[in-house]
Design a protein around this nucleic acid. Structure first.
Length: 581
RNA sequence: GGUCCCGUAGCUCAGUUGGAUAGAGCAUCAGAUUCCUAAUCUGAGGGUCGCAGGUUCAAUUCCUGCCGGGAUCACCA
């Protein structure tokens, strides 16, 4: 339960109980009423702007209206103190009993606490990674993979019906290049000297094992076939092998897609699916034959003014109409995209989310245009552009040379620093913000490393349970004794925990998974802070050998902290360790 | 040149969809730590929220225009 929306209901009920008359006689507009934790804790536990929002509608002074609202809220047993501040804020202080009841839920509901139904079962497709199957994933795919996976987890947790999807770009020239590269590796495996990989082919060593496998399976027989037939066989094998590599890379990052959609399937059977999709678009009047205006600025040397089949995307918000058929009669990449989008639409998704790198910003408008045209504006299309990651080693940028086939793979990074630090750091930043990723910093075992700091909080919770067992054998958390928690520092920790459902809902609605990571950091901070108070004040320590009941109550608090940490970390796909090693 | 993203403390970044005195971490400075709950702790200083207008009770947040940084502008996929 999100207690802030619960109290929002109470505030609105209080306002409605006043039987106010609006100046224009219409209904009271309460949509802009906010109930939230105040920035400054001294203002209370909960603050609302209700009086300020309503005042104008009913022609009253905000503070005077606040007085009236407060007079009703004062009767609420869970509210122990009310005050009016500033231009008309109403501040509420909530009883300890209420907070401890919340704690009981957190400790009791375990993995359920914080789940929400704000998503209302809305069908959402999150497409992310979609790396070309021409080699292992490189580090540039990392952020999008983590953000997409985390966003999908988050939205599921908040009550959306989410499908994680990967679009396999297994059609087109880059796959032909792949097949030709593998062909060379195959001949190499049969003992031919191939020398350096010719310019334009994929030089990476990762194709060598595939060449060897093909040599073993087919012997010399592929060389005896026509080049066309041989390449067709190799192409299938290559795509399978590359996707296997990619799936392994994804698994290493704890990323798991529900659906892998192959671009080839829309080209199959003489491109039936593309034809059907384009036909659909044509019937809706979005397709025509015409010429494109030449690009502004400098004219490309090979520019030819030519009539072609175009998607009239400018009518649905795009900057320029988009070609659907190439001069050789084959379909453009975008035409396949149309078919793919239609497929998603027919699968009933109400919202399509695309997690893309910032370098794909130019696609956003045509995708939006496509969504409008295909669905008659009935589906929502959201593009999350993630800014690039700058890899650093000891503060120095890591050099990568794509030409020489030397790039840092995703696996390199995961193997070196571990998947938890990678995942956490990739979402510990707003996705629209560039990100520095320093190998040394993310593996550092200190308070300065947020991954460690949050995971250590989890380990510390487990450690408390272990210590309690050692000192008071047989002890466990007792949620019936939570009323024994009465220290302000303990209640403050509960208040922090109670923010979790609200953070989940807000992060899911805003599609900003980084908020979960930041919240977990704050929670860890509160927890460690409370722990540290036990240094000076022995009374505040969790385990009190001479007071098993109080210890049981405090174990309940630790359980609450641990449950929220676990839920949050699970959204991030990060482990909540029982100990740090 | 068009489009998109960004501009907040010395640095790296949050900022609860428009709220109160703009917050963390690092760095800096000043203290603490024979106590084992120290893979440290407490506190302090530090700001024209890029600039200028506009919208309103209220703008870091929304709109417009500039300035600065980045990405992208193919019949490629």
């Amino acid at each position: 339960m999100n207690i802030f929306s619960a109290f929002r209901d109470r505030v609105i009920a209080a306002v409605e109980g006043l039987q106010l008359e609006t100046r224009d006689g219409g209904p009271l507009e309460t949509a802009r009423v906010n109930v939230e934790p105040p920035r400054d804790p001294s203002h209370g536990d909960i603050a609302t702007n209700a009086a300020m929002v309503i005042a104008k509608q009913v022609g009253e002074n905000p503070r005077a209206l606040a007085e009236k609202i407060v007079s009703i809220l004062d009767q609420d047993a869970d509210i122990v103190e009310t005050s009016i501040a500033g231009p008309g804020f109403v501040n509420l202080r909530i009883s300890n009993e209420f907070w401890l009841n919340q704690l009981k839920l957190m400790a009791d509901e375990s993995a359920q606490y914080g789940r929400s139904n704000v998503g209302g079962g809305k069908k959402v497709n999150v497409e992310f990674v979609s790396a070309n199957p021409t080699g292992p994933m490189h580090v540039g795919h990392c952020r999008g993979a983590v953000i997409g996976d985390t966003l999908a987890n988050l939205m599921k947790f908040a009550g959306f019906d989410v499908v994680k999807e990967y679009y396999i770009n297994d059609a087109g020239v880059q796959i032909d290049v792949l097949a030709r590269s593998v062909m060379l590796r195959y001949r190499e495996a049969l003992g031919e000297a191939i020398g350096d990989m010719p310019e334009g082919l994929y030089p990476g060593d990762y194709l060598v094992p595939l060449g060897e496998a093909l040599a073993e399976q087919y012997g010399e027989t592929l060389k005896e076939k026509s080049e066309e037939d041989a390449l067709a066989i190799i192409k299938d094998a290559a795509i399978d092998a590359m996707m296997k590599l990619i799936r392994e890379d994804l698994a290493a990052l704890n990323v798991h897609h529900d659906v892998f959609f192959s671009e080839r399937t829309v080209h199959e059977d003489n491109a039936t699916k593309i034809k059907a999709a384009l036909n659909d678009l044509t019937l809706k009047g979005h397709v025509y034959r015409g010429t494109l205006p030449p690009p502004k600025g400098q004219l490309p040397e090979d520019w030819e003014d030519r009539e072609q089949v175009l998607f009239r995307s400018t009518e649905v918000g795009d900057d320029i109409d988009r070609p659907l058929v190439k001069s050789d009669g084959s379909y453009t990449y975008f035409a396949a995209d149309v078919a793919y989008f239609v497929d998603k639409f027919e699968r009933g998704f109400e919202e399509m989310i695309f997690v893309l790198g910032a370098d794909h910003g130019g696609y956003v408008k045509r995708m939006e245009a496509l969504a409008r045209a295909v669905s008659d504006d009935s589906v929502e299309l959201t593009v999350l552009l993630c800014q690039l990651v700058k890899l650093l080693r000891n503060g120095e940028p890591v050099k990568m040379s794509k030409r020489a086939g030397q790039f840092v793979t995703l696996r390199d990074v995961v193997d070196e620093v571990g998947r938890d630090p990678v995942r956490f750091m990739m979402v510990y930043r707003k996705s629209s913000e560039p990100l520095d990723f320093d190998f040394a910093k993310v593996t550092e075992q200190s308070k300065d490393n947020p991954v460690f700091y949050v995971q250590y909080a989890s380990a510390r919770c487990y450690s408390v349970f272990r210590q309690a067992q050692e000192q008071i054998p047989g002890i466990s958390a007792d949620l019936e004794l939570l009323h024994m928690l009465d220290d302000e520092s303990e209640i403050a920790l509960v208040r922090k925990l109670a923010e979790f459902p609200r953070i989940v809902e807000a992060a899911a609605m805003a599609q900003e998974p980084h908020r979960i990571a930041f919240y977990l950091y704050e929670l860890a901070n509160s927890f460690h802070g409370h722990w540290n108070k036990g240094n000076d004040n022995e009374h505040l320590r969790f385990v009190k050998v001479n007071n098993p009941q109080l210890t049981s109550a405090r174990l309940g608090l630790v359980q609450g902290v641990l449950n929220v940490l676990r839920s949050g970390l699970e959204i991030l796909g990060v482990d909540a360790p029982e100990e740090m090693r």
